[in-house]
Design a binder for these strands. Structure first.
Length: 560
RNA sequence: GCGCCAGUAGCUCAGGCGGAUAGAGCACUCGCCUUCUAAGCGAGCGGUCGCAGGUUCGAGUCCUGCCUGGCGCGCCA
């Protein structure tokens, strides 16, 4: 619908500019009008052209309108205000949306912008030292929606989860489990400094003593039961927490294609190779017994230690090795979704990659950072979960408010805004809760279609596609159609800007437009032509609602 | 002190590349169930877009400075 008007406008523009030495603007803006009195679409093209053409904007607008090719889909145009051109569409233009939706068979709004190019989205990437917390949940919700959006835009998406299974934190975890296995509780003599204090450590210790076998998505380990064997303890503890995180992710309906391990980067020699290549590149130096990378060559505010005086590497060295590996695996596009508390790594990783001089473009990879989540209940901040001890777990939220509400609220805010998660709001099953308003719209349509079947009214996808729609003239149904027409643009922009919250916001508007229409325009009327047309519209609206909900990983229930 | 992010209605938040009278949900007030699900609809109330300058036909949006909050500033990840 929009592309069609843009095309006409482009022709008008070409004809107006012809014969002058004024270049046509590189891109045209055509906005969906906010005020219905401004029609359906509006452009400020005349205002933009006024200066280069040295003519009053309204006069330019008149010329543009005169040059606009006639179309049966445009009812009229108006010149308004300082020189806006408003387009009023004919109902037929709206009706075409229903056909578009139905013909797409569940892929309406999708596009081919990605052209099957590979993109990796790395997200969650929690270290296996405890259950996932609410921050990981935000990362999971945002990252998973990004993957769904990119896939809908024709990208070949790989979902990757990276975790540190070798560093100081894992040593710490191992010591904590060992202490628990030996009957030592936090703060008792022998409890490791900075040990993990959550109850889950006790569970892991007990399972280890029971010689249990644990299976996670990427590994299986059987406990030896010997608390003196640190390697066995570590392997078992990591497997246990991986399994726990897998269960959390499964409950959240988030899946990964690839798990990457920090330890593998060492085993495969990628870390040493990266260090050697960085040294060879001339961007390193030795000082105070440590090896430094001159990250200041690439915009950092100070240089960073690569190899500590104890001989170990700092965390960003394997990160650089890992990202070079991503590049070598053919991912010319990589998006890392992380908590913003790690944003300082961005400069270092990019600097390391640039210093390698291996053809990686500046500014690669992309990052999407999410800000902190504060959980509120009863007007007070919630900070503690029994199981984890020191933070609110994702599982707590899912158990308390459900997967759909959790996902919706965690993805509905712009990632770089801090988020207040109100448990009372999320769990309320009333009109206070936007996620239910959206799902209810979907369920309502399903319910009416079921009613139609019960009444013996023949209706299916084929009938919907063939339905004449000329009787759809009510203002509410045109408004609903206009909202549905915006969906492809929402998907496109949300994927382009890596902002899945736009989809969540759009769905609320779509649900609202649907409910208003539902209220004013009964579907199961006696007139078979009108009835069929409205059922076709409802069928299409259901497709768009289900498609949008799918992009944010929220279910589209048939009953509520 | 330096860097990143944010500051928009009582609350939670949207606001494409600068564009028309700044929007939504909730809360609050008033209406609407004999009617396909009232988990809904309609109307009303509610604003110094953090502050101050600047750029221009036009600024919530761009620039500068400042204020407030979060995060980071480690040979932790």
């Amino acid at each position: 619908m929009k592309t069609l008007i843009l095309e006409l406008l482009k022709q008008a523009l070409a004809s107006v500019v012809a014969g002058t030495n004024v270049a046509a603007p590189q891109s045209l803006t055509l906005d969906t009008a906010r005020d219905p009195r401004h029609g359906d679409y509006a452009t400020n093209l005349a205002l933009a052209l006024a200066r280069p053409l040295r003519q009053p904007p309204r006069k330019v607008a008149e010329a543009l309108v005169a040059a606009l090719p006639a179309s049966p889909l445009i009812a009229k145009t108006e010149i308004a205000g300082p020189g806006f051109i408003n387009f009023f569409l004919a109902p037929a233009a709206f009706h075409a949306v229903v056909k578009d939706v139905l013909a797409a068979h569940g892929t309406y709004g999708h596009n081919t912008r990605g052209a099957h190019h590979k993109v990796m989205v790395e997200f969650v990437s929690a270290n296996p030292t405890g259950p996932l917390h609410v921050g990981h949940g935000r990362g999971a919700a945002v990252g998973d929606s990004l993957c769904r959006l990119l896939a809908a835009c024709g990208w070949d998406v790989t979902r990757e989860f990276y975790y540190n299974d070798a560093g100081v934190q894992i040593t710490n975890l191992t010591a904590s489990v060992q202490a628990r296995a030996m009957g030592i509780a936090p703060d008792e003599p022998g409890w490791p400094a900075d040990g993990y204090r959550g109850d889950y450590i006790q569970d892991v210790a007990q399972a280890f003593l029971n010689r249990e076998t644990v299976t996670a998505d990427d590994r299986e380990v059987t406990a030896t039961g010997n608390v003196e064997e640190l390697d066995a303890l570590r392997a078992f503890a990591v497997a246990c927490l991986r399994r726990e995180q897998d269960a959390d992710l499964k409950a959240f309906a988030v899946k990964f294609d690839v798990y990457s391990l920090e330890s593998a980067l060492y085993h495969d020699g990628l870390v040493d190779q990266t260090v050697a290549d960085l040294v060879a590149s001339g961007h390193t130096y030795e000082q105070d017994g440590a090896l430094w990378l001159k990250t200041t060559d690439y915009g950092d505010d100070k240089d960073r230690v690569m190899r500590k005086t104890d001989g170990g590497y700092t965390y960003f060295v394997p990160d650089v090795a890992y990202h070079r590996q991503k590049w070598q695996r053919g991912f010319t596009r990589v998006i890392n979704e992380q908590g913003s508390d790690h944003h300082s790594t961005i400069t270092r990783v990019r600097a390391g990659l640039q210093a390698l001089h291996c053809g990686i473009p500046e500014g690669w990879p992309d990052y999407v950072l999410h800000q902190m989540v504060t959980v509120m209940r009863g007007g007070e901040e919630v900070k503690i979960s029994k199981r984890a001890g020191s933070y609110v777990t994702l599982r707590d939220l899912i158990d308390e408010v459900g997967r759909d509400a959790t996902r919706y609220f965690l993805v509905a805010r712009k990632a770089d805004s801090q988020l207040v998660f109100d448990i009372d709001l999320a769990r309320s099953q009333t009109n206070e809760n936007p996620v239910y308003t959206i799902q209810y719209a979907h369920a309502r349509i399903c319910s009416v279609l079921a009613q139609a079947r019960e009444r013996g009214i023949a209706f299916d996808a084929a009938i919907a596609e063939a339905a004449p729609l000329a009787t759809l003239t009510d203002a509410k149904e045109l408004a609903l159609l206009a909202t549905m027409a915006r969906y492809p643009e929402v998907v496109d922009i949300a994927a382009e800007r890596l902002e899945p919250h736009l989809v969540a916001q759009y769905l609320r508007e779509l649900a609202s437009a649907f409910h208003a229409w539902y209220h004013d325009c009964p579907m199961l009327v006696d007139d078979p032509v009108l009835r069929t047309a409205r059922l076709a519209l409802a069928w299409a609206a259901r497709d768009v609602l289900a498609g949008g909900l799918g992009l944010i990983g929220v279910s589209a229930p048939e009953h509520m």
